[in-house]
Amino acid sequence: MHAALVQFKPRKGDLAANLDAMREIFAQLADGPVELIVFPEAAMTGYFLEGAVYELAFDAATFAAKVDAQWRAAGGTRPVDVAIGFYENALGTFHNSAMYVRCGGPDGVHIIHVHRKMFLPTYGVFDEERFLTRGRRLSVFETPFGAAALLICEDAWHSLVPTVAALKGARLLIVPSASPGRGIGGNGELESTTRWKAILASTAAEHGVYVLYAGLTGFEGGKGMSGGTSAYSPHGDVLQSLGPLDPGIILVQLDPAEIDLARATIPLLGDLSAVLPDLWLDEEIPVTRRLEERA
């Protein structure tokens, strides 16, 4: 599978301008081999919206139609899959969501999956749960490459989330993100970016999965979104990455055979599947106790 990861710099709250920019990116990619285009979290609005999130959120079908319209307007004459973060209005309940949507098909646009961010950062500079409701389910869905899962930003920081996705069969993890850069003591790289790369590479290597990360860029009220769009092989290698500050596109080719090689060399996922029941049923794990109390 050929994928394109878009490091996108939105105009804050300017949906029309951002859709125009999306259309230009689509035009750039329409004639190539790309089958999947990944955009960051909150790509068409910017991330820090506070109360304006209620004015800039869409139901999934409406948002998908807008993405599909850009692909067609850009001259996309074949179907393409798009993974993109957006603020979702689900009948008056608001989520930080990402959709995997098939655009340009002969019978219209088709939403394959909508993931609602489960871990809403609400500390320090972050205030998501003041405005949004968290998602309750992590699902794996089928793509032309195979089973995949969407994890939005902090979802990927908890090692358990990608672990569950991999156990459910995901071979590809798509991570739309908006990460305000911080930590200037690093060696040529923001400390937050260094941490991101370590997490994503470790995730890919532990489970033998491809990880595709698309980061927002540009400053929002002094907070610089740190880009860092990057692709990781199932061996945990960085296949390509972008810097923090400028928009850009990574083209990456995913080879399912690499997953087999990685898992055959280091079969951690298979080992985990075997041992997980012993770990999970440990009565000292708080979640197990709570489940027993409920029963």
């Binding site: 850069g181 200037i184 003591g185 690093g186 040529g188 790289e189 923001l190 610089g224 923090p244 500050l245």
Partner: peptide, 11 residues
């Protein structure tokens, strides 16, 4: 409190 001055300036 250490900074990478080149990175900081660029940012």
């Amino acid at each position: 409190l250490t900074i990478d001055p080149a990175l900081t300036a660029r940012w």
